[in-house]
Structures are given as C-alpha cells and as structure tokens.
Design a protein around this nucleic acid. Structure first.
Lengths: 346, 346
DNA sequence: TGCCTCGGTGACAGCGCTGTCACATCACGT
DNA sequence: ACGTGATGTGACAGCGCTGTCACCGAGGCA
C-alpha cells in the first residue's frame, strides 16, 4: 500500500503507537519533548492518519453529513462551500447527501446514512430541517444534528438551530417597493413545503398591512422555486386587467423568470414594472437590469451551523444563532410610471 | 451503538459471518437456500454494512472521489449529480473534492485524499485532468483514475478518459452565425488554463477559415469563465469603431455577461447584435432572450466517466468514450441588421 | 519515612468487516 | 471402490486506528 501507519511512526520515534495517536489528535497529556520527537517523525515519514480506521475504532468518524433537498444549484454550492470551510478548519470530513424531504422513510434514510459511516452528526438544511416528526425520530437514534430554519426569532425549541429571519427581510423589500410608490405589488410564492416561503409571504403581508394597502388575492401566485414558475406567474400577473406595477419573487430564480416574462412582453424593467427577488444569487447579479434582492449568505449560514454542530459533538454548549438577510437595492426597482404615461405593449 | 453487525445476522441465520458477507456482496458461491435464509435475516434485523469497516478491511473502500476546480456552480452540481447517479446505481460511495488545479503539490494532495479514505479511484474533471505531469505521478501511486478532457477525437493516450469534442461544437456555433450572414463575429475566450477554451477557439477559427472570413485579433478578447469578464469583454467589442454583429462567448456565463452588456448599452438582442454561448446551463435557458448555445450534458459525461472508473476498478477493460455537444438554436441569434438600418444606441 | 496523587506512557483488546486458506461435501468418471 | 474437481462454508488473522486500564516515577503532604 505504501502508506505510512501509526506503527511506522512509533518505531521511527521510539515511542508507542498510542503516543503517536495522542500527538496526532492534539491531546495535551504528552511531554513537550516527546511531542516534538513524534511530530518530526510524522513529518519525515509523511504520515497521514487513515480516516477509515480512525472512524471505525473511535466513537465517531470525525465526519459530518450535509443534507439538502433543493433544486437551486447556487444555493447548494454555497452551502457546500460553507460546510467545507468549517470542516477543513476543524479537521472534519464532509459527506454530502441530497435527498427527498417528503419521503416517508426520511428518518430511517438519514439514520442509515449516519450509521453506515459512523458520521459524527448532520447539518440539516431547509426543507429537510422542517420535518419535525422525522427529526424527533432521528434524535431517538442519538444522532446529533443542527438544523437551519426560517424563523423571525430564536425558536428556543427542542432542536438546536441556526435561524434566518426571512420575514423581516421580505418586509424590508416590500417596504422598499411601497416607499417607491407602488401599491399594486404582485407576489410570486415559492415551494409549498418550504416554511421560508410562508415566512416571506408573511413579511409581504405585514408590510402591506402597515402601509394600509389591501392584500389582493389575485396578485398572489403559487409556484415553485424555479424559473419557469416565475415566468408563468409573472405572465399571469401582467395579463391582469389591472396589472401590478411591481413584482416580488420569492427567490431570485423566480424573479429572473419574472424579469424574462416582462421583457418577453415588451415591458421595460424597471420603467414599466419593478421586479425584486430574494437570495442575492448570481441570478440577481447577472441579469439586466440586476435585481433588487435580499442578501442571504447561505455559505456563512451553513458554516455557522457546521461549527455549532462540531462544537456540540465536542460536548460544548452552544446557543442558537440568527441571521438577518440584508436589503440590496439594484436596478430592477424604480418608482411606478405615472398612469397616464404608461406605454403600450409592443 | 444499536447498529446491527454481520455477527448478529450470522447468529440469527445460523451461518458464519463470512457467509453473510458473501451474500451482502452478491458473491455467487452461496447456495440458493442459504442465501435466502441470510437475506431474510438481513431484512428482519435491518442490517446495513458498515462502510468504514468494509473499507478498512477490504482492498479499497468502494468509494470514489470527484475532483474539480471550477467556479461554475451549475457545472459542479451537474457533475455531482452524474457521479451520484452512477455511484448509487453501482453501490459505491462518493467523496467530493474541490481543489486548486494550479497548486504545485497537486499530485500529493490527491494522493493524500485517496489514501486517507482508501478511495477506490478518482474522477478528474477539467482543468485538473489537464495537469498531465501530476497525473503521471498519481499513477505511480497506483491510484486508478479516469479523466474528462476536451479533445476532438480519442487521444488513445496513456490515461483512460472521456473526451468532449468542444472544437467541432464551437465550429457548429460559428458556422450557424456565419450562415445567418454574420462576418464580424467577436469571440470571448474563457479560462487560460482550460484546454477546452483553446479547443473552442480552434473551432471558431476553423469555421472562419472554411468560410474565408479573416480572423481579426481585435475581435478576440481574453477573459475568465465568469460573468464579469463576459460583460467587460463585450463592452469592449461593442465600443469598437466597427463593432461585431455577433458575439460568441466561450461559455454561457460569459455569454450572459455579454447579453447584459448589450442590453446595458441599449442594444436589442438579437436585432442589433447576436449572442451565443456554450454549455446549455440555466444561464442560457433563463435569460431573455434565451441563448443559442451548445448543449453539453456534464451530468451524463461525468456519469459515464464514473461508470468507466468503477468498471476499471473491477478489472474490466473499457474503451475511451467521446461526446459531441449539440447545437441548440434559441432566440439570441438572428441575421445581422442591414447596415443602413442599424439603429442608434440610446 | 510512608502514603497518595497525578502527569506521562504503553499494552492490549477491540471496532466490523474482508482475504485467505482449509475443509466438508457432492457429482462425476474410471 | 477410488480419485478428481467443483462447490459451498467456516476459522482465523488482520486492516490501522482508539478506548481502557495498568503502570511508573516524581512530587506533595502528614
């Protein structure tokens, strides 16, 4: 195999394998001089611990699992980056796991995933993190996890979590549109299973209410977190007898769909209609005009969750932490065009 | 731990642990009746093999590594999906590994990655797959790998590979533009370290040559595979005294940047300028107008490479396989506007 | 001086599998 | 009747680590 083992290092340094193990794992109960000798031997031989052996032998594998169920590539990559950053830093491995959050055997599937690799714990992202019944089961299997959820404040509930305040961020976006003078504001909802989607809608509704603007059912369209639903939903809104002057898409992909829909109808954004998204994904930065949105750092959020998880695995107590997405105003929103000057569609 | 082991199953079925192992691994040297008895026991106890133990004990871990160095999220996700599909199907695990392909210690880093987990092999994607010196080193470590590269035909070289014919696909796109009547065709190059970028340029050049259109240096702009370089590069082209009537971006993200640049200048696509990309990523489908591009199924390509790798690990002989991206004509390309009617910029 | 504590170290037994080899059994041909 | 080879099965020794416990010597205290 050619690969160097603990025993090789032990022989080279003139100590026992166990002592090398102690040094490799940074335990402090080793005399300074011994430690140096071992470190030199490790260096000279180019020793790398075999992670399988460590995992098999120890109580856990120093590896965590990242679980997601999401169609959004940017989101996934950002989450993976965040998890990797934390894992690399803390010397843990990472296993990724796409799954179907609506599957009935979810808890069992996650248990298998964790037990087969002796995973140290799981980071559960939305919407998997919202299947509380499954999570309760998971906990009985004694598998540590941290979940990322959408909540306006610390839920202080039974599960440790990182929470993202989608509601207030959606409130901020809606307020931004109201202050520009928009009154008819369309809302394109995202994934029904996503609690975040409901929270964003709540923010939209609250803002309308606080500005005494009636909520009109015809301006709210259901859909999924995908471009095509944004396109179709926006077309439907723009075809109304009295179309909205602004459209708020539940995420950037939906908003990009709405943008394309407006442009395909010959409308100019933001002059004829304003469009806002949510996420600050490349979709919003790389469209023309770039989209007003709410910046949500999925990488930072997941990194935080990963660090929390590892801290818990190490037996430390950690408090839940919240994140507030931040309003980012770009070129896709502007005051509504005065009614009289509204230009005809091509 | 609560998790069921081989011995538990063996006791329950009244056979030896080794026999259970044989059944679990689908070896055929087990009597049909014994197999059934063992399978029933596995079922009843809910046995799942521990992958760490299997990997530690066996000659390899039935897990492959996917190595990439790419800024393009869609591309990465597509590749991961392809690799996962093959791994799930063939009962292998998957480890992902972003890395810096230009790092000097690349071979050593990959060896560590593989040896620490006893990985069965690696799938190397561009541009990591192009660092042939490192690959030669990797081979001396006896780590199996399959690489994905850009080549117009089977290289039949020292390393097994899946090859993608970028050159002919770029030729097809350029020809498409030429046949529409374009003569001044801008080309936005991508990543200098990417062989694919050079191949695409070659296809562009060959097409111009075959149509007796001179290659003009001022119409070729260097850049990276990112939106911003597409934007800047296109701005530069459009600001020329004699701007191109069509722009070919080396991938969809670059093309999306070019599209935004055109729109930001007040030009209408495709009426004032045609734009084409490469990849068929969501960027091309979800812009307005949608981009003419070359469909390249990264998921299918990586799945194929993964299957090849696993076949080789199993000792089978496998031939290299090639893929031809396919021209997809969408709304972003059209005949050039007659010179006289060219409309002024806003 | 004797007793106890404690930091530092090593011996040893697994973790849950697979590779290897030996052995039992059976059908077949002589 | 016997050997021969194919077939099915089990015993056993690891894979390379870590958890546990035992041990040794130095220092503190009575």
């Amino acid at each position: 195999m050619g690969s160097v083992t603990l025993d090789d290092v032990a022989a080279h340094a003139g100590v026992s394998a166990k002592t090398v193990s102690r040094v490799a794992n940074g335990e402090r109960s080793v005399r300074e001089e011994t430690r140096r000798r071992v470190l030199r031997a490790i260096e000279q031989l180019g020793y790398r611990p075999n992670l399988l052996a460590r995992g098999l032998s120890g109580s856990h594998a120093y590896t965590i699992g990242l679980v997601y169920d999401n169609p959004n590539a940017y989101y996934i990559i950002a989450m993976q980056q965040g998890a990797l950053a934390a894992c690399d830093d803390l010397n843990f491995g990472l296993q990724i796991r796409p799954c179907n959050s609506m599957a009935s055997g979810l808890a069992g599937e996650l248990r298998d995933f964790a037990q087969r690799m002796r995973l140290s714990g799981l980071v559960l992202t939305t919407p998997v993190s919202e299947r509380t019944a499954s999570l309760r089961r998971l906990r009985t299997y004694r598998i540590p996890f941290v979940r990322i959820i959408s909540a306006a404040r610390d839920p202080r509930d039974e599960f440790p979590c990182v929470y993202v305040n989608d509601r207030d961020a959606a409130y901020a976006i809606t307020t931004h549109l109201l202050q520009l003078g928009h009154v008819r504001i369309g809302f394109l909802r995202g994934g029904k299973n996503h609690h975040a989607s409901a929270e964003r809608f709540r923010g939209y509704r609250n803002a309308l209410h606080d500005y005494s603007v009636p909520l009109r059912d015809e301006l709210v369209v259901e859909g999924d977190y995908i471009f095509d639903d944004g396109f179709r939903g926006a077309r439907r809104l723009l075809d109304l007898a009295e179309p909205p002057t602004a459209i708020f898409g539940c995420n950037d992909e939906i908003a990009a769909g709405a943008l394309a829909a407006a442009q395909s109808t010959g409308l100019s954004v933001p002059y004829d209609v304003s469009i806002a998204g949510f996420e600050d994904s490349p979709f919003s930065r790389h469209s023309w005009p770039p989209l007003t949105t709410a910046r949500q750092r999925a990488d930072v959020i997941v990194e935080r969750a990963t660090r929390m998880l590892i801290a818990r695995i190490r037996g430390e107590q950690v408090a839940n932490q919240g994140f507030n997405p931040e309003l980012v105003v770009r070129g896709s929103t502007a005051p509504p065009r005065p009614r009289s000057r509204q230009r005809n569609r091509r």
